[in-house]
């Protein structure tokens, strides 16, 4: 190895990339060459200074907002890929239920929902839930795509399952099979499917910010009194909010991350027709639809529906802790 080689390989030497044999030759040359020792000494100092300076000036960005944005993008990406495989699994096939979407409403397409539904091949009224809890479609060509709808696994308040259709309002009970007349099918409500879609096929948040900023935004924009429903913590984070419609009702959709998993909280106003007697609030019930777990919390003026991928016991255990009463 000569002086030219030393200059050629000096960085490999300093970076520890020279093979043992070459390293030996390199150091052998250095031992007998003052000029090369000085050169290598300078390069080592420079490399040290550079590495130190790069570390000292490395940006320490506040990534919280970006993290929320990335998480929302990942949710959208997942949903997109589910849709690419539609029909391939029973879990993703809930999309075929084809009820008026928050998406359609928010885009001013409510009046065009007929055409939209036609394109999806099934109308809301086509969906029926049998007494066994399995679902089927009136349109037989789509029947295989209809996901099973489980009965509510727990109802805190038995009265909750009482038929409330007479009230004229849309009630959470309307989509629990527990409210089904014995022996007869009950229709899955637009609301139930709309809720699941709002979670599994989310539209982008229209506003992101801190909890206070989001609360302020909702206060200014929402047509009813609404506030972020979950208490934030190190594991529960509010990502963003969207004002939308679900089953023709105005709703506020809050996007949360709970233990890194997406949880969607959809709030809608309780109609006047639901002023029936209840001993205490909030009243909670839960159900599943298409593999997604739903918790419904009626807290007087509003009902909050929580939709998530978490399994039901986890949601049930988490929500009393998290819910802001």
């Amino acid at each position: 190895m000569n002086c030219v080689d030393v200059r050629k390989f000096v960085y490999l030497y300093l970076d520890g990339e020279l093979a043992a044999h070459d390293r030996g030759e390199f150091e052998g040359h250095l031992a007998g060459c003052l000029e090369c020792r000085e050169t290598v000494g300078f390069e080592a100092r420079f490399r040290g200074s550079l590495r130190q300076a790069l570390r000292a000036t490395d940006p320490k960005p506040d990534s919280a907002a970006l993290r929320a944005r990335v998480e929302a993008a990942l949710v959208r990406e997942t949903v997109g890929s589910i849709h690419a495989d539609r029909g391939a699994s029973s879990v993703s096939s809930w999309r075929w239920v084809g009820l008026p979407l928050a998406a359609a409403a928010s885009l001013g397409l409510v009046v065009a929902s007929g055409a939209y539904l036609t394109s999806r091949g099934s109308s809301p009224a086509d969906i029926e839930i049998g007494p066994s809890g399995s679902a089927r479609a009136a349109n037989p060509t789509r029947s295989e795509a209809i996901p099973p709808v489980a009965t509510a696994s727990r109802q805190v308040e038995p009265a909750f399952a009482a038929p409330v259709a007479a009230s004229g309002g849309v009630s959470p009970a309307a989509f629990t099979a527990g409210g089904a007349p014995a022996g007869g099918p009950v229709r899955a409500s637009e609301l139930a499917v709309g809720l699941v879609r709002a979670h599994a096929d989310p539209l982008p948040a229209e506003f992101v910010g801190t909890r206070e900023e989001i609360a302020r935004y909702v206060r200014a924009k929402a047509p009813f009194r609404s506030a972020p429903p979950l208490r934030e913590s190190s594991t529960i984070r509010l990502l963003g909010v969207r004002l939308d419609h679900c089953a023709d009702e105005p709703v506020v959709v809050y996007y949360y991350s709970v233990f890194g998993k997406p949880v969607t909280a959809i709030q809608r106003p309780n109609g006047e027709g639901q002023e029936y007697a209840r001993a205490s609030r909030p009243i909670t019930s839960s159900s599943t639809l298409g593999g997604y777990h739903l918790v419904h919390i009626d807290s007087g003026d509003v009902t909050t529906h929580l939709v998530s991928d978490l399994d039901q016991p986890a949601v049930d255990g988490l929500m009393p802790v998290a819910y802001v009463q």
């Binding site: 960005p61 949710v75 599994a200 233990f259 998993k261 593999g291 991928d309 399994d311």
Partner: peptide, 29 residues
């Protein structure tokens, strides 16, 4: 642990997030 047991269409994403998101700060920088 129960929180992470559920088999859902989002499970790959959850695994991905658990593994990848801790590197977000480094990637941002």
């Amino acid at each position: 642990l129960r929180l992470f047991r559920s088999k859902t269409p989002n499970e790959p994403r959850s695994r991905f997030e658990a593994e990848a998101l801790p590197h977000l700060d480094a990637l941002h920088a």
